[in-house]
């Protein structure tokens, strides 16, 4: 294995390790949210520093590879993809931290009927699945699996769009729970953004493996 190959392998291991950390953050936030476990939410906030540290380390490693090895072709695409996925993961980590802060702020569990009407739990489950699938597709360099992310993201968009009207109705009927409803709507917005991050990461994987740019392209799942 050449020196560059060793560096690239180590970079891949680093980004996968950060990815797993971010996914765990989201799983913990999910548990904290369903059981209103504020201690677990505080843990998510504390661990966010590690996510930020990993981002800085990977940024630096990419910079070093560019400067020292001048990678080309598939190697260049890999480092470029990792650099962007690194940024996507850091933002996803920020979102987990944001949700954890909401959990600390709310004083009672979310109303079950509101969770059901907004399909919030389905949305959260879908986000966790997407995070894990995009990671697996990266580990296995499986672009077919990555393309499925685009379809899954459509469900998140749909739930997000419908949430406005559902929440407005709920607030009219339960004005005393307005804070809680707005918190939930904010979390739905954040989950929708995680879906976008997963989609971006899937696009980066396809760019790396197939040299195809899918950003801003219509009908992504077709090709």
């Amino acid at each position: 294995m050449s020196h560059l190959e060793i560096e690239l392998k180590s970079l891949k291991e680093e980004i996968i390790s950060m990815w797993k950390l971010v996914n765990t953050q989201f799983e913990k936030t999910h548990i904290a949210l369903t059981s209103l476990d504020k201690d677990l939410a505080r843990e998510v906030i504390a661990v966010e520093k590690r996510v930020n540290g990993a981002e800085l380390k990977i940024d630096k490693d990419c910079e070093n590879i560019f400067a020292l090895f001048s990678p080309v072709a598939v190697d260049l695409r890999f480092v470029l993809a990792v650099l962007k996925i690194n940024n996507n993961l850091e933002r996803t980590g920020d979102i987990a931290e944001g949700i954890a802060k909401f959990i600390i702020s709310v004083d009672q569990s979310f109303d079950h009927s509101l969770l059901e009407k907004t399909r919030f739990m389905l949305m959260y489950k879908e986000v966790l699945t997407m995070l894990n699938e995009v990671l697996t597709s990266f580990e296995q360099e499986d672009t077919r699996m990555a393309r499925k992310i685009f379809e899954r993201d459509e469900l998140l968009d749909e739930i997000n769009i419908q949430a406005n009207a559902i929440t407005a109705d709920y607030i009219r009927s339960n004005p005393e729970r307005i804070d809680q409803a707005l918190y939930l709507l904010s979390i739905i917005r954040k989950l929708e953004r995680v879906g976008d991050q997963c989609k971006n990461m899937a696009e980066e994987l396809i760019f790396y493996v197939e040299a195809k740019v899918l950003k801003h392209a219509a009908g992504k799942s077709v090709n």
């Binding site: 050449s2 080309v72 072709a73 598939v74 695409r77």
Partner: peptide, 17 residues
Amino acid sequence: IFTQPKDKKTQNYITGR
């Protein structure tokens, strides 16, 4: 050629493999 070579041999050469 340096970003997305079409031939595997080209890719292996320019990436030093």
